[in-house]
Structure formats: structure tokens, C-alpha cells
């Protein structure tokens, strides 16, 4: 098997840690070598954050190089565009249709680009645009939007569905297992 490279990007505080923990746990359960690289410290305070997940027979570097990501999972759409050069030629992009304005935009020093989804669609052949926040609101908890995205990711990977659900249940707080599984199903069943 070829090594699998998944880049998770978003804004500090969006909770990308859950996704990388599920992926890490899942791939080690499957017996793969796995490395996950995270961001801690200053950038977590609302900055642009990136998590690298790599698994396969033997992984040396914990980082995905530019042009080598098989999948980019973007929790925020401008961040999807920012890290797009990490995606390989025929890679897949899963992007949350949410805009979080960075401070230079809030203060008027810069403008939030208005045609991001078009630019992503033009640049990448496999793009999934998901309104995860809306779905999470429908489920009654905006915090599970990342689990909706995890469902979309799972649907696009060659790993048994039940294994995803078992791993997810083992990682989220007990009280939230049910709503997380619901959110996962919502994402998993999206047909694009």
C-alpha cells in the first residue's frame, strides 16, 4: 500500500484535533505505522492551523510535503485555498462552506476573497463542498460540525464504516457519543 497523506486545515479553536485523533487511532488499529503532527501554542489562538496525518507501511517524516497530500480536509474555506498547494495533482479536497474572517479583514486592511469555491473547483477535480455548520445546527449542536466532515472523509476512504464509528465512539466524551454518531452518519450519507 502507498502511504496515505491527509492534511487537516482550519482556524485555531475549530477542533481539528478530534479528526486527527480518530485518524491516528484508526490507522494504528489497522496495524499501520502512523505519524500525526499538530500545532500547539500561539497559533491556536484563532490563527491558521494545520495538522498532518500520515499512515502506511513505514512513515519517516511526520510532515506532508507541498504537492504530496492525497486529501485536504478544510474546516474553513479560505484555509482550504491557503493550503491548496499541498494537494497532489489528482488529490481530493473536502471543504466546509464556512467563512471565518481573519483580523486583517475585520479591520478592513484586507478583503476576504469572494470567489473561493469557484477557485477551488477550477483548481481541483475532486472537490466536496459541505455546509457542515448548517447540518450541525440542525442536529442541535454546532460543535459536531467537525464530525459531519469526518463522515464525508470516511465515505471517501477505503476503510470499513463500523471501524470509524467504533473509533469515534471511543474518543468523544461519553455524553456526546450519540449526537456525534448522528453527525457522522449525516456526513457519510451525503451524495455529492
Amino acid at each position: 500500500m502507498q502511504n496515505v497523506n491527509i492534511l487537516i486545515v482550519g482556524v485555531g479553536g475549530q477542533g481539528s484535533l478530534l479528526t486527527s485523533r480518530v485518524l491516528g487511532s484508526l490507522s494504528s488499529r489497522l496495524g499501520y505505522d502512523v505519524k500525526v503532527s499538530e500545532v500547539h501554542g500561539m497559533a491556536q489562538r484563532g490563527g491558521s492551523v494545520v495538522t498532518h496525518v500520515r499512515f502506511g507501511e513505514k512513515i519517516y517524516s511526520p510532515l506532508i510535503e507541498e504537492g504530496k497530500a492525497d486529501i485536504i480536509l478544510a474546516f474553513e474555506k479560505m484555509e482550504g485555498l491557503r493550503w491548496l498547494h499541498y494537494l497532489k495533482e489528482d488529490g481530493m479536497l473536502i471543504v466546509n462552506d464556512q467563512a471565518i474572517k481573519p483580523m486583517p479583514v475585520v479591520t478592513g486592511a484586507a478583503e476576504y476573497p469572494d470567489n473561493i469555491l469557484n477557485r477551488l473547483n477550477d483548481a481541483v477535480s475532486k472537490v466536496f463542498v459541505i455546509n457542515a455548520l448548517e447540518m450541525a445546527k440542525e442536529l442541535g449542536n454546532i460543535r459536531v460540525s467537525n464530525t459531519v466532515l469526518l463522515g464525508v472523509l470516511a465515505q471517501n476512504m477505503d476503510i470499513e464504516k463500523q471501524l470509524w464509528k467504533d473509533t469515534l465512539s471511543g474518543i468523544v466524551p461519553k455524553k456526546t457519543i450519540e449526537i456525534n454518531l448522528e453527525a457522522f452518519e449525516r456526513g457519510y450519507n451525503i451524495r455529492v
Binding site: 490563527g47 479560505m78 484555509e79 491557503r82
Partner: peptide
């Protein structure tokens, strides 16, 4: 891409 920075806040 050239995009607005996203500094920590």
C-alpha cells in the same frame, strides 16, 4: 495563493 494573513488573536 496570496491571501489575507490569519494571525493569532
Amino acid at each position: 495563493e496570496e491571501l489575507p494573513n490569519r494571525p493569532p488573536v
